[in-house]
């Protein structure tokens, strides 16, 4: 019987992190921006069928970058978690903090225990009744949970996008301004024009009633950016 090679844990973790980062860097980014009535999520996505942004619950949404099958599994698990909780207790008891924690636990477990870490990064957005109640939770491939404020970007070019947005962001924009702001950040970083049918966009908007999630179509984005 041959003994397996000894690999020091530092090396093991480093290798896995590198592997995951490489996978994520290949994917296109997603931006979330807070505006006066809620939060806008904007992604560059030429596919109409495979979404990166999705509804989780009344005031909660999900966005994922990286390997589609991996973040799709997490999106589905999140909807199940939220619907079970809302059905068992009350609709107002479903909160992003507990879901973000659960995602963080799951991703951390996958990172350390499974053969291959997930090559994804996800964002959980929650809109409160008023602007201060809004949360943007970012969960990385290793389960690291970060709470962002105002705007954030995940995916391959998150650093460049964040730097660009930091320069230009101002609180209290309306939706049209937020679409322009996020679109310009993408184009500044990509250094090219992005066509109106290459966007995937959705909002969580306080004026939408109980279910705040709404997808934006190409016309709406074009109108806002023209």
């Amino acid at each position: 019987m041959t003994l397996p090679y000894y690999v020091p844990p530092e090396q093991l973790m480093k290798d896995r992190a590198e592997f995951a980062q490489k996978g994520i860097a290949k994917g296109r980014s997603i931006i979330a921006v807070e505006y006066a009535d809620g939060v806008l999520m904007l992604a560059e996505n030429s596919s109409r069928a495979l979404n990166k942004i999705g509804e989780i619950y009344d005031r909660m949404a999900f966005a994922g970058v990286g390997k589609y099958n991996e973040f799709e599994a997490l999106r589905v698990a999140g909807i199940r978690h939220a619907d079970l909780k809302g059905y068992s207790y009350g609709r107002s008891d479903v909160a992003a903090k507990s879901l973000a924690n659960a995602y963080s636990q799951t991703l951390a477990a996958v990172f350390t225990e499974s053969v291959k870490p997930y090559e994804i990064e996800i964002l959980i957005v929650e809109v409160g009744d008023e602007a201060p109640g809004t949360s943007l939770f970012r969960v990385r491939y290793d389960g690291t949970l970060v709470d962002e404020e105002g705007f954030c970007a995940i995916g391959g070019q998150e650093d460049e996008l964040t730097a660009t947005m930091k320069e230009r962001y101002e609180a209290g924009m309306d939706l049209r301004a937020a679409i322009r702001f996020a679109g310009e950040a993408f184009e500044a970083v990509e250094e090219r024009q992005i066509g109106s049918d290459e966007w995937e966009a959705a909002v969580l908007d306080r004026t939408n009633g109980r279910r705040m999630f709404r997808r934006l179509d190409a016309d709406e984005i074009t109108a806002a950016r023209s």
């Binding site: 997490l74 978690h81 995602y103 799951t106």
Partner: peptide
């Protein structure tokens, strides 16, 4: 009213 605390990924869908 027991709820699963984590997100079971591998349960039969």
């Amino acid at each position: 009213l027991d709820l699963p605390s984590g997100l079971p990924l591998n349960q039969p869908a």
